[in-house]
Design a binder for these strands. Structure first.
Lengths: 138, 138
DNA sequence: TTGTTATTGAAAATCAATTTCAATTAGAGA
DNA sequence: TCTCTAATTGAAATTGATTTTCAATAACAA
């Protein structure tokens, strides 16, 4: 989990490596919590004080486009991002501190097939997300 | 599925019954599709042309507070609302037209318990949502 | 019918996100 | 290493959704 792979991916896709991008990438990649653009801005400015908020938005946009990060939907809002787990992953979020755990192993085919049959929908995708309290916040 | 129950609930909670509220309530309650505030505004103005957009926001806020409607989260955005199914319900959304079906019968306890054990999280809540194409849109 | 108080729509304000723009800088080629 | 050019930058302006303010209106209890 070093900062190199994401920067390399950006570079391989024709984007230049700048201080602003490095600061944003290192901040998001190193985080176990979902972060809003503003939170990324505040954290990344500690590494690179000249950083502008606009560059945060622009970098997050590119990281999302490359599927390196994903948007996190919560009752409290849908602006936060977390690194995209590899493969088909779901999220478990701490309602208190925002800490994120990934999990796979959902077996929803039986359910989705039954619902497809009943409703006549052609089911393409599913979202499964758990909320709770992490060990620290209980 | 008449418009009376929601209006009654509003009244019982100390809110007055006005033309603006009636128009918004009838629009949202009668819809099988998730609607954004702007869509509600456009539809409800056909019933009550003097309606202001602000009253749409204010009425939706009250309906959400009384758990009569719920916000719908989608990859394309999270501004739309649909009536809240009774009991523990999940959503199946048409990716094309936004039509919504409700379903229950998810049996995620085995999964959530396993994840709780592995992660140490105390799991409180889950979101399960399916996306696909409804019969009309296939 | 009257009085009070919640509710209204319009306009202004707010907030997050996007666009514009001139200055800067990464990095390819000399 | 130096030069050039196009991508990138941060600041400021703009946008679009939502919220707040406010004086006028209307619901509804007495």
């Amino acid at each position: 989990m070093t900062a190199i792979p994401w920067l390399t991916q950006l570079q391989e896709n024709g984007y230049r490596l700048t201080e602003a991008r490095r600061a944003v990438v290192e901040t998001v990649q190193g985080s176990t919590h979902a972060l809003t653009p503003l939170q990324v801005f505040d954290l990344a400015r500690k590494k690179y004080p000249a950083l502008g908020l606009v560059s945060v938005y622009r970098t997050l946009e590119k990281l999302e486009e490359l599927h390196l990060i994903q948007r996190v939907h919560q009752p409290s809002g849908c602006q936060a991002f977390i690194s995209a787990g590899s493969g088909h992953q779901h999220l478990l979020l701490c309602q208190n501190c925002g800490k994120v755990e990934f999990f796979e192993g959902d077996d929803l085919e039986v359910l989705t097939e039954a619902i497809a049959r009943r409703t006549g929908y052609q089911i393409k995708e599913h979202w499964l997300q758990l909320f709770g309290l992490c060990q620290n916040c209980q």
